[in-house]
Design a protein around this nucleic acid. Structure first.
Lengths: 170, 170
DNA sequence: CACTTTTATGTTGCGCTGCAGCAAAAAGCG
DNA sequence: CGCTTTTTGCTGCAGCGCAACATAAAAGTG
């Protein structure tokens, strides 16, 4: 199936919290296209199931629990089993397309607001539930310093902050 | 508004990761004594149940799941119901005596390595499972800056880092 | 092409997590 | 002492997460 996004789109500075009235159709299809590219480049297969899971997450812009995803994928052909969704989520996470929000037992599509292995700071709006990804450059440094002071060799920092997002504050 | 309490204990330089051979008997009883003082000062009751839960956590120096705690509290008189333990954990958390490690769905006794409302950085050793609490002074600053850049008003930062602790590295 | 190997999905089942709702017991108070 | 508030016990349940095994689909191979 052919996508109707324009290939030559220049990189738009992405808002950390998408405006309520943003062109969602487009933002989702861009993300799917990126996922395809990414998987192809890594020799991984973005199967229909995996794509469906990613689409469900993209459609919400909010973290979804695994069983919420199941709910949204349910149709007249029945619903996927939990394990099926969990496996797709594992795949998507391994390929940097989905994050897990630990404090909520939920998952969110990656906003790609950060370079590959960099530290990500998740900003969780307690009002609308949206999750933003802020680049954590300076934080990473401070964190490494603090860790080393404790004789600790850090690996995967996880930062989640609850608060009020820019749109809900207005 | 909650600054009326000042721990009267002289500040002992507390290792972030307790040495494997430290005087555990003493470290636990000190923590219990502190909990009693703290609760008394706040007009809260450290009941036997709550104390047992705290003791179980202190005895392990590692995060325990709720059902692990139940297991350790079980005796010839039977075992506490999950809800009972969860309620005690809620109480202990509200009074700053226990932390929840979100990425593990587990709980750990507070090491008091941080001032009351300050940011805490949890260092989780992937080898021995121990959890250290590093003061997050510099990190908090960087975090606030990063948040504000995104138009986000932060409330409860949560930082958990997986890595190797000082003792396991040797 | 048939055949093997690898990868992905479906099915069943189960243990852990976390709490709601109500009842009983214990502690605090006039 | 009665009365209120707090705490604990009991029953039950929904969401989370995955193990173990079976089947199907894709990819590699001669």
């Amino acid at each position: 199936m052919k996508s109707n996004i324009r290939p030559g789109t220049t990189k738009i500075p992405r808002a950390i919290f998408p405006a309520p009235d943003h062109d969602h159709e487009r933002c989702a299809s861009t993300a799917i296209a990126y996922a395809e590219t990414q998987c192809a480049a890594r020799g991984q297969r973005l199967t229909p199931m995996r794509r469906h899971v990613l689409e469900a997450l993209l459609a919400s812009h909010k973290p979804l629990g695994a069983y919420e995803i199941i709910e949204r994928l349910a149709n007249k052909n029945g619903r996927p089993a939990p394990i099926t969704v969990y496996r797709s989520l594992d795949f998507l996470r391994e390929n940097g397309l989905v994050h897990r929000i630990e404090s909520r037992n939920a998952f969110v599509a990656c906003g790609h607001n950060h370079a590959g292995d960099d530290l990500v700071v998740f900003l969780i709006c307690e009002r609308c539930g949206a999750v933003g990804e802020a680049p954590g450059g300076g934080v990473a440094e401070a964190l490494r310093a603090s860790s080393r002071a404790a004789g600790f060799s850090p690996k995967n920092p996880l930062i989640e902050i609850v608060g009020i997002c820019s749109h809900c504050r207005e």
